[in-house]
Design a protein around this nucleic acid. Sequence first.
DNA 1: ACATAAAAAATGAACGTTCATTCTTTTTTT
DNA 2: AAAAAAAGAATGAACGTTCATTTTTTATGT
Lengths: 194, 194
Amino acid sequence: MAALQKSIDKRNSLIKATIGLVNNNGFHATPMSKIAKMAKVSPATIYLYFENKQDLVNQTYIEVKAAYTNYAFATYHKNMSVEQGFEIIWKRIADFKLKDSENAMFLAQCDNTPMIDETSRQEGIKHLEPLLELWNRGIEEGIIKPISEYLLYAYAINPLSFLMMSAQRSAFTLDTTHIEEAYVAAWNSIRVIK
Amino acid sequence: MAALQKSIDKRNSLIKATIGLVNNNGFHATPMSKIAKMAKVSPATIYLYFENKQDLVNQTYIEVKAAYTNYAFATYHKNMSVEQGFEIIWKRIADFKLKDSENAMFLAQCDNTPMIDETSRQEGIKHLEPLLELWNRGIEEGIIKPISEYLLYAYAINPLSFLMMSAQRSAFTLDTTHIEEAYVAAWNSIRVIK
DNA sequence: ACATAAAAAATGAACGTTCATTCTTTTTTT
DNA sequence: AAAAAAAGAATGAACGTTCATTTTTTATGT
């Protein structure tokens, strides 16, 4: 195998191990030694790919966040109507959180703890631009309530994280009916009701 | 001062120190030595009040959760209409999260990490009974959508946590206008729209 | 093609530090 | 004076990171 590919594989397996262990134990309860063991690598090798533990988790965060937003916006185009655009993006996000719940859980933990550097967090937010643009367009067209983007996000998108966490932790199982109901609730919370 | 009162004070200041330090640094990055220092107590003394670090944080969680739900349901009575009841509880919760953001942040972090024992988490959930009862009544009366309590919570209550965290972390400031807008969004997401 | 030497990558063991917890002594209360 | 509470110092384990060596890869000359 080409040396470059081997390097990429090793880095990927380190990132994957980090996600798995942090999900189960939290940042500070996952030692580098365990990450190394899970990735089948020596602890010292991690430091060839990452500066230190903080750098490893920052890079993991940015990478997972990029994969998430790529997936979310993959089928969206700027010439769609606001309703269409919102439904498509919302359902892609739901899809990601259901199917790729390992990654989704990791993002949720990062977004709710002081685990990630502030700069890396900012970097992650940047990727959400298309959604903010869509909302602004919706507000201009009188379709979406003229409220802060924080409120829009809180009611339209974030509840999906909560649902995913509930499904992970309790006996609650998220099926397609729930997703449709959740979509209706999301849309009703942010649209202008006449 | 009475010895009993002194004991209570010492325990309270340990719990307060725990909340402050965990909020800023996370569970595993707050050493017992720092908690002791902030509470003006010897590290050894902590072990007279709590079994170990995990027990300290579990008890802190349960105590804060109880204060939260007490506040949330203080002005609610079972003979209120569903609309009234929901508005009153919702706004009390908003009030708590705004005014007592230290405690609210602590709960948010506990609820989004593997920091708390599963049993303590369950214990915390119990206190929400009155709200679940209200929702069931709302569903029976055809006022609230007949969907899972997880969905109701995700759209009606949890967004407030997200908003509080955003306000803490970014330049975003939550004022009374936002709260009213958020309340309308919450209600529209869970009520039956005719 | 192949042997070989230089370079790079990877390793396991070791280091210094930090932490939760305990032990022994001192202080405070009864 | 006895008992209880509190203290600071000590302990052992675990951690992130680095160091000295070994293994693997790459480049070179035949």
